[in-house]
């Protein structure tokens, strides 16, 4: 697969300065809530591990604007995320979507819990029949 290299850190070293954008408010509280939630979940691609809600990078501002526009035009969460993933790939979302290759992220915790539960039951059942103290009969 062909990969692309993000720019040298010298150009893009972004300190976690946070974006405070008072224009970032939507009139409709439901839409505003959706806007906040989505921008918190979209990764700023040119920053080091920051969401676009918290980034001052120009690209993050552009993406906020685009998300805002889509919400105002009535797009729902899935449509907006599809729009972003289509353009920037799965990397753009902080909560990974289900894909065949990343199923382990979502199945892993379930498998761990199941294995843990089985281990607990097996151990407890085995110990149940043993003497409570070593020197007890």
């Amino acid at each position: 697969m062909i990969r692309a290299l993000t720019f040298s850190l010298l150009l893009w070293l972004s300190l976690p300065a946070h974006a405070i954008d008072p224009s970032d408010k939507l009139e409709d509280p439901v839409q505003d809530e959706l806007y906040q939630r989505i921008t918190e979940e979209v990764r700023c691609l040119v920053c080091q591990n920051q969401s676009i809600a918290n980034s001052t990078a120009p690209l993050a501002a552009d993406l906020r604007r685009e998300i805002r526009r889509m919400i105002e035009e009535g797009s729902n969460e899935t449509e907006i995320k599809d729009f972003l993933v289509e353009r920037y790939g799965d990397f753009v979302l902080y909560r990974p979507r289900f894909r065949s290759w990343n199923l382990v992220l979502w199945l892993g915790p379930i498998v761990l819990l199941t294995v843990g539960f089985i281990a607990l039951v097996v151990n407890v059942r085995r110990r149940k029949n043993l003497p409570v103290d070593e020197d007890a009969p």
């Binding site: 979940e41 902080y94 894909r99 290759w101 382990v104 992220l105 915790p109």
Partner: peptide, 30 residues
Amino acid sequence: IAAGVVLLGTLGPLVFGAFDLGSVSVGPQY
């Protein structure tokens, strides 16, 4: 298990990258 889940989310992106499966971000929402 809790440590395992954190390990999975922290190293998951690395694993997918190492095997050219795709790029994924694992963040607070996960």
